[in-house]
């Protein structure tokens, strides 16, 4: 039984989130500003915090910074600001993830689950040889198994090979032609547009929100890359 702290100044949003999360079997604590959240976090055992940024008394960014002083509980920011700078600021201050408003409840639940799994079970996951890991994605090349947040996903052989290539060179950008040549072992002659389709499918399988990927990123006009994971 995990306890999730919800913090937003809009009570309707808080109760909606409360309904979704309790129906998923989580226990919730509802707070309506940053100060309340900090107080609640001090007195209760909390496993995850959902925090709005724009709030009275103490905003989400400062509350996150305050909470980070003595805890490494996962924090997901809820933000109406869609500018990149706000997201970067939030992540730099110590948040683990962010969700932009208006959000889809299913995305919220997916992200909550992902964060909880990583916080509780993967904290000290052993990284054996032949284990490729980026963020929540980990590939056991020996067993040919790919897991995201500990959950196994099924991939086609081509998808598997593409993911293997990208996972083994995190941060490096591969063009469609390069991927085609490496995975198909054929010179690319205009047939590489199948790569884009495969990658889209791959993204749908490993990303919570494929339209806004966190790990398998599209570098428009240049190719694709696997984001270098933070852990």
């Amino acid at each position: 039984m995990y306890t999730i702290l919800i913090c937003d100044d809009d009570r309707d949003i808080v109760s909606a989130l409360d309904i979704y999360l309790t129906s998923e079997g989580y226990q919730t604590i509802k707070t309506y500003n940053g100060l309340e959240a900090i107080r609640a976090a001090e007195t209760n055992e909390i496993h995850l915090i959902l925090m709005d940024i724009m709030m009275p008394e103490l905003d989400g960014i400062r509350a996150t910074a305050k909470l980070r002083e003595g805890s490494n509980v996962p924090i997901i920011l809820l933000t109406a600001k869609s500018e990149d700078t706000d997201k970067i600021l939030g992540l730099n201050i110590g948040a683990d993830d962010y969700i932009t408003k208006p959000f889809n409840p299913l995305e919220v639940i997916a992200r909550v689950k992902s964060q909880l799994r990583r916080y509780t079970s993967l904290g000290g996951a052993d990284k054996g040889p032949g284990l490729l890991t980026v963020g929540p994605i980990s590939m056991d090349d020996g067993a040919k198994v790919v897991t995201v947040d500990g959950e196994a996903i099924s991939l086609t052989p081509i998808e598997y090979n593409i993911l293997k290539l990208l996972l083994s060179h995190p941060g490096q950008v591969f063009s469609s032609a390069q991927i085609y040549e490496q995975v198909w072992n054929d010179p690319a002659f205009g047939s590489e547009n199948t790569v884009a389709v495969h990658i889209r499918h791959l993204r749908e399988k490993i990303e919570i929100n494929p339209a806004e990927p966190r790990y398998l990123k599209v570098v428009w006009g240049l190719g694709y890359k696997m984001e270098r994971g933070s852990n």
Binding site: D10, D12, A16, A80, K101, P102, F103
Partner: peptide, 16 residues
């Protein structure tokens, strides 16, 4: 921005 907050509630409660 101000539209987004009530919109979040609408989407969520419609889903509910």
């Amino acid at each position: 921005h101000d539209l987004k907050t009530p919109l979040t509630s609408i989407i969520n409660y419609v889903n509910l």
